[in-house]
Design a protein around this nucleic acid. Structure first.
Lengths: 248, 248
DNA sequence: TCATCTAAATCATCAGATTAATTCTATTCT
DNA sequence: AGAATAGAATTAATCTGATGATTTAGATGA
């Protein structure tokens, strides 16, 4: 049990069969019971908290959280990216392969409500793009992708896909896209959703793959530090407008 | 920089551009410089240590480790499995898809030495299986798979694949396999390696997929607590022998 | 019923002291 | 000179006790 992990705190949770929502004893009690100081206990607690295993608040105490792969992946990923931004492409590559690999299975599980939701996301995205001034439909982008995989009963796949978007945001890519690119992406999204709704999974898959290639050759309008380096004079009006707003 | 992660310690590493092997100041100094107590610093240090970002020893101090995705994945995965063993199948499914998705690319990068190594692993595995008493070639199994993906320049893919084997061992599966199954698996391995060496990647890929299906319908000779529940009377001699030795 | 205040529980943080582990260094022995 | 050993210095590891901050629950009053 828990071989390879040294944590009296987590061991306590496992050995006592604590489940999501269950409360742990106060640190002082735990300290007495586990025979280790509060200081050491807090070191382990911080790890458990960073990885999303427990939620800890004053007065409320320590509660077991539902398992999610996301915090661990995100923590490691964001640290890696802070050291070397080139690793974003590596993770991106993994994410793309995972999306491809689970696409058919995921689509097969979508409910009617999910399909409606996908369509409304496409609508909202185009509304933002065609607004004056145009806005970047970043939240819609994230949610569209994650919605497709929502019904997969695999926390590890989900965690990876979710972490991608956190990394995407950390990289600042969302802010630095040009208008034509975004429009083309969303045209693909629209066609993917239509294919899914129409029951043509093969077509949807093919479009997904194509749309990913689009991202790979996206305009590299940024320096290594995430600042825009495009010459403003060469940008079209709508792209310029996009760069002046925070994505919403 | 490091948005979404709250850790003065990691921030220090990033902001000061510390690289693999670099040393951090002693905790007392850090405490003074970062204006936080040693106790709090140690909480963050424990997280960084658990995720493999730093190595910390008395007298030597704190050193930055090369980045690896493995510790974060393993930690989260092992905790998850300790709570619910069924999650092994979920991670296994992810791992299989990732192996499939990166197989061709990985094989294309293998060197001649790698191919030699693969062949020697197959030889060693059969030698163990045909020994008296037979031994489980678990290390060879792990290394064969990881060797195939060794040249991939993607720490995230590598971390996932490595973590699988830690989980595999934690599940105790390695100890509870029957002889015929193992022999069949290694026959596949042999054919996969031969196909790779022969340059027939498509054949190798097809065999890989087949061999994975073999694992999915493996004999479930264990209870929920990892103990053998097979009736000894129904086992053949060689399988019985396997169960009495620790894999080596 | 609602809002506000009060008190208790619990985590959060800190400072200091002691202990243990590791590495370096100097000494001693062969 | 070289190897083994003993000791010293550095640093993390752990514990203790004290104080502060936050959240919740309950009491109080309009």
């Amino acid at each position: 049990m828990l071989r390879g992990i040294e944590s009296d705190l987590l061991e306590y949770i496992i050995e006592n069969g604590l489940r999501t929502g269950d409360r742990l004893p106060p640190l002082e009690e735990l300290s007495a019971e586990l025979q280790i100081s509060i200081g050491k206990l807090r070191e382990q607690l911080e790890v458990a908290r960073a990885l999303g295993f427990v939620e800890v608040k004053p007065r409320t105490g320590i509660r077991v959280s539902p398992f999610s792969f996301l915090p661990a992946v995100r923590f490691s990923l964001l640290y890696a990216l802070a050291q070397d931004r080139k690793l974003f492409d590596a993770f991106s590559d993994l994410r793309n392969h995972v999306e491809f690999a689970f696409f058919r299975e995921a689509v097969a599980l979508l409910t009617d409500e999910d399909l409606d939701h996908l369509q409304s996301l496409v609508e909202r995205a185009f509304a933002k793009l065609e607004d004056h001034p145009p806005r970047i439909p970043h939240d819609e982008h994230r949610e569209l992708h994650l919605t497709i995989y929502r019904r997969l009963d695999n926390p590890f796949v989900k965690g990876l896909l979710e972490a991608y978007w956190d990394a995407y945001e950390a990289e600042g890519l969302s802010v630095f896209s040009d208008y034509d690119y975004l429009h083309e992406v969303w045209t693909y999204h629209e066609r993917i959703v239509n294919a899914i709704v129409g029951g043509d999974v093969n077509e949807a898959y093919a479009l997904l793959v194509q749309h990913t290639k689009l991202l790979q050759k996206r305009p590299q309008a940024r320096t290594t530090r995430g600042r825009v380096n495009g010459d403003a004079a060469t940008m079209d009006e709508r792209t310029l407008a996009l760069q002046q707003v925070v994505p919403s």
